[in-house]
Design a protein around this nucleic acid. Sequence first.
DNA 1: ACCGTCATGTAATCGGTTACATGATTCT
DNA 2: AGAATCATGTAACCGATTACATGACGGT
Lengths: 210, 210
Amino acid sequence: MTAVRASLATAQLTPTSYLVLGLIAREGPSTPYDLKRHVTATIGHFWSFPHALLYKEPARLTELGLLTEEREAGGRRRRLFTITTAGRQALRAWLARPSRESTELRDLGLLQLFFADLEPATARSIAKEQLALHRAQLAAYEAGRTAAAPRGSSSPSPTIEHWRGVTLRMGLLYERAAVEFWAAVAVREDPSPPSTRARSHSKVSLIRKP
Amino acid sequence: MTAVRASLATAQLTPTSYLVLGLIAREGPSTPYDLKRHVTATIGHFWSFPHALLYKEPARLTELGLLTEEREAGGRRRRLFTITTAGRQALRAWLARPSRESTELRDLGLLQLFFADLEPATARSIAKEQLALHRAQLAAYEAGRTAAAPRGSSSPSPTIEHWRGVTLRMGLLYERAAVEFWAAVAVREDPSPPSTRARSHSKVSLIRKP
DNA sequence: ACCGTCATGTAATCGGTTACATGATTCT
DNA sequence: AGAATCATGTAACCGATTACATGACGGT
């Protein structure tokens, strides 16, 4: 009965669950370390899944009957997980169900900027720091993209390069947006042109209010 | 001693902690509900902080000595939290410390797309769904932005409108990127032009592999 | 007076994060 | 052979999410 409830509780699968299910469905039987490597090379660039998760999640899914596990006898005693029919079904069901939740965009730099007026002097430094970071990330994506898309690669089925491409394309667009944003902030907060135009708001420290 | 350790453990403050500290530092003594409303109107659009968090976190911060709490005697028995000197200090320290962690971009639609080849028919429907969602969100931001920026508002200090503007500007840029991305995906996956150009990869279901 | 929504809070569960730990490989 | 890094895993804590619950307020 516990098993029944568990196997029916499709609703309680997390994004991590579907990531694991999807990877194993596509790549075939995998060890947690396989998952880790694949994730690092693709979606992990902007959605982090700590490796401990990728070791724990397959165990959960196995309990739910969505995966099976076999363990190497000797050597590293690796765990190899295989997807079951139920697992494929859960995955299909999820793919067919539209996701209406909106994107979580969690950025510490943005949070800092949100409070930057509390210490006006830091607004610029935050912007410059973030600008540098996002420019670097953008460059990394662009380098990876040109390297990843070998013209006329006649590989019959999608390779990991393909998936790098798919996921990184969005990352690329996001980083472009981020660079644009932080560049604008940096300019706006730059005190170098002491123009007569009034600032949008006073620059006194607001951190202590009466 | 526990208290000492706790108050020194600045490192273990989470983004939520700084959000709460920052809001109370800027807006003055606040109830959890005040926090909730403010967050909903601003950063909550793309970084969700469930209201239960905003009730629990102030209590934690109070234990750490970063806030003080006073409770209404009668009526709704609201809890009013005020920031302490230590709290302001922790906030300042955080603002001065650059955040090097990169953005978390958690999007269920992207995750689905990542596995869309497992069910080729769904790739397009996912793209269309996401495109509609992001267009709607983009429209909402743009509507909010024009409404929120009253020319020549001579308010002496930044109002909540100002902060809506600051946070939503990034949201706006992100949504533009997202719309661009999903539009491209939708076009690429659209089978309407049955051109002779070979597809980048075969469209057979990969969900069962030998 | 009633009803719906706003406002306010608590409890329990559980996933995610951090920290720890150690056996294989590879390089010098 | 030793060092460094890769590979592999476990354990524990704790924050975040979900669910539950109820009192105040405004409108009809």
